[in-house]
Design a binder for these strands. Structure first.
Lengths: 105, 105
DNA sequence: TCCCTATGCATCGTTTATCTATGTATAATG
DNA sequence: CATTATACATAGATAAACGATGCATAGGGA
């Protein structure tokens, strides 16, 4: 899979994942592989900087939570994050349908 | 429109355009705007380097043609280019449908 | 006549999203 | 006791698209 295709969609997919329920980085990476059937593979070097940037923007919030003898940094989406997600999804919809029009042309 | 979304699709769209009929750079730029209803806007700084790279790879061929008192560099797609286009379209299909599964999840 | 816009090709440097590689630390497993 | 899985983090490399700029010619309006 051409990795360039992912550009501009990673943040959206992270927000989408957090829309379902709060979760933490390592689990997100495993989950990405799972829900995409191995098509997408989110890397640590991609994920963590994005999480920090999203938090800085106030689109997500973090809190440490200990479970199963492990320290995990959970993230939850904020109202602003939800708004941003809606926008990104709408943008993706326009993009994908325009692309399909061109390809079916 | 988030320009990052376009990454990885520009080459495919250029090949797609040339699949219909041979054309030249300036016309491609105008046509991009037209067929995408203004959603996509191909820039010269993007197009010309890609055309040169595609020609170097043998996916397209160029020839100069004078018309309406103008010198224009036309491009046509080669058999290899057609193969590459099919691959890219298939990849895009997988990508877009996977993305939609995640977003509708 | 002259200037501005449209047409047409081209390239250099910048921007930025993602990845690779690496580091640290702890729990579980064999 | 060593290796693997879990967990977070960052610095530097890579590469696609863009912005800015350059050059040249045709056409239209003042």
């Amino acid at each position: 899979m051409n990795k360039e295709l992912l550009k501009g969609t990673t943040e959206m997919m992270i927000l989408k994942m957090l829309e379902r329920q709060p979760t933490y980085g390592y689990e997100m990476i495993k989950n990405f592989e799972l829900v995409s059937n191995g098509v997408f593979s989110l890397k640590e070097g991609t994920l963590y900087p994005i999480l920090h940037a999203l938090e800085k923007k106030g689109h997500i919030e973090s809190y440490w939570h200990d479970q199963e003898g492990r320290k995990r940094k959970y993230y939850r989406i904020t109202d602003e994050g939800m708004l941003s997600l809606k926008e990104k999804q709408s943008e993706w919809g326009t993009f994908a349908s325009t692309m399909n029009v061109i390809l079916d042309h």
